[in-house]
């Protein structure tokens, strides 16, 4: 669980960095996309790994929560929450919503199923001057749809809720926590989650506000 969570967290960071290239010229991100597409020996193993990680993470979480539910057969009549944060108690919910988001996101930007982007266009047909797939244009067009952007922001929010607990939990589960920085861990995890949230959201928001627009 922790191992996969940790790797997924790594992907989220890397992906964020990749995506933030949108704030540079369209050239950058398109080149980046092209680079990825052009090196299948890198892309596919990475994709496979991601899929495996995601599947393992989800299967493990399902197992975990059935075991945990079984561990208390009779619930308390009255139960007060002590110390446990909201995020920590709703990992399964936030995780599932993230999963839904990711599926939509894959259909939207990776497989680029035309029907679900609500722009009436087919993203597969977007090409830039150098005949590369125009990711820049796809993103801008995609996020011009307030509904889509809204859903993305919601997805991000839940992801970050998930991570606000997940990251510090990960340190605990991996046994990395110690008494020197242990007490900064929870706030740090929340901070990191917030940064990731802001980072990702900056993209749809920037598009909606017209800061990032088609050249």
């Amino acid at each position: 669980m922790a191992l996969t969570g940790c790797a997924l967290f790594g992907f989220v960071i890397a992906h964020l960095l990749g995506n933030l290239q949108i704030f540079l010229a369209p050239e950058n991100i398109n080149r980046y996309g092209q680079f990825l597409q052009a090196t299948p020996e890198l892309l596919w193993p990475a994709r496979m790994a991601l899929i495996v990680l995601a599947v393992v993470h989800i299967v493990a979480s399902a197992q975990l929560s059935t075991e945990n539910r079984r561990a208390r057969s009779i619930p308390y009549a009255e139960c007060q929450v002590v110390a446990a944060s909201y995020a920590s108690r709703t990992m399964m919910m936030s995780g599932l919503i993230v999963a839904v988001f990711v599926i939509y996101h894959l259909l939207h930007f990776t497989i680029q199923v035309p029907g679900i982007n609500f722009t009436g266009q087919d993203f597969r047909l977007l090409h830039d001057a150098k005949a590369r797939h125009d990711i820049y244009q796809m993103m801008v067009l995609g996020f011009k749809q307030p509904l889509v952007s809204g859903f993305y922001i919601l997805g991000m929010a839940l992801l970050c809720l998930h991570l606000s607990h997940g990251v510090s939990s990960m340190f605990q589960s991996m046994g990395w926590k110690n008494k020197y920085y242990g007490r900064f861990l929870d706030p740090a995890a929340r901070g990191a989650a917030l940064l990731i949230f802001l980072g990702y959201c900056s993209i749809p928001v920037a598009v909606l506000c017209g800061i990032v627009r088609l050249p």
Binding site: L64, N68, R70, A71, V81, A83, S88, M91, H165
Partner: peptide, 15 residues
């Protein structure tokens, strides 16, 4: 023994 797993919610420490 059938105990559940720790998901680091921290209630244990508090009580």
């Amino acid at each position: 023994e059938g105990f559940g797993n720790c998901t680091v919610t921290g209630s244990c420490e508090a009580v």
